[in-house]
Amino acid sequence: MWQDPLFGLWFNLSNVMMLLVAALVVFLIAFISTRNLNLKPTGMQNFMEWIMDFVKGIIKSNMDWKDGGRFHVLGITLIMFIFVSNMLGLPFAIVVQGDLWWKSPTADATVTMTLAATVIILSHYYGLKLKGVKGYTRGYLQPMPFLAPLKVIEEFANTLTLGLRLYGNIYAGEILIALLAGAATAGFLGYVAAFLPFMAWLGFSIFIGTIQAFIFVMLTMVYLSHKVSDDH
């Protein structure tokens, strides 16, 4: 932990570093694979286009492309960023003097809650912008006016679940990896005992990391479409 002297803000330097690493990795992947763009896609361009189409599919399953097209860039960036963040903690963890430095940035509730809150705030912003104050307010009175308090609670619940789901999954995965790694390094017997579960859990963590990135983007689009579209 580090407090900047000017404003008294607290920084978890591990988070800061890992966020930057994740951002850098995402940027490099995207940047390198979009050099030499061709009408006939090859190699990495195919992969990037597949991701774009994938996110496009998520958006289209929730709202009109006319409304949802503006969230395309947000969706792609989110899914890549969260996926890379989830993967970063898997191969190794670096601990310096009792402090964990290398880990998934998404294994920190502050980071995931920030992303979740950003998404929810964006949904309110676009709800107001696209449907106007009247349409936005009417959204709270449907399907029944007396359910309005629940609707307000729902907004907070959405934020909380969106952020904590991601955090919980990744954090739990990292803890188990750390425990298994601890067992494996404890001795020969521990290594033998921990090897198979460790492999299995790594594979499962990759799966979870992918799924969670997908779920996060999916729910983002669901929440956005609730605010933006009329037919939901």
Binding site: M1, W2, D4, L9, W10, F11, N12, N15, V16, L19, L20, A23, V26, F27, A30, F31, S33, T34, L37, Q45, M48, E49, M52, H72, V73, L74, I76, T77, M80, F81, P105, D108, T110, V111, T114, L115, T118
Partner: peptide, 28 residues
């Protein structure tokens, strides 16, 4: 509360999104 982390997360994400839009998603 580590407000600093929140700010870093937000700014990192926004800058990343902006850069990607400019250099990767836009052309693609």
């Amino acid at each position: 509360l580590n407000i600093g982390d929140i700010l870093v997360t937000l700014s990192t994400f926004l800058v990343l999104m902006f850069l990607l839009k400019k250099f990767a998603w836009g052309p693609l």
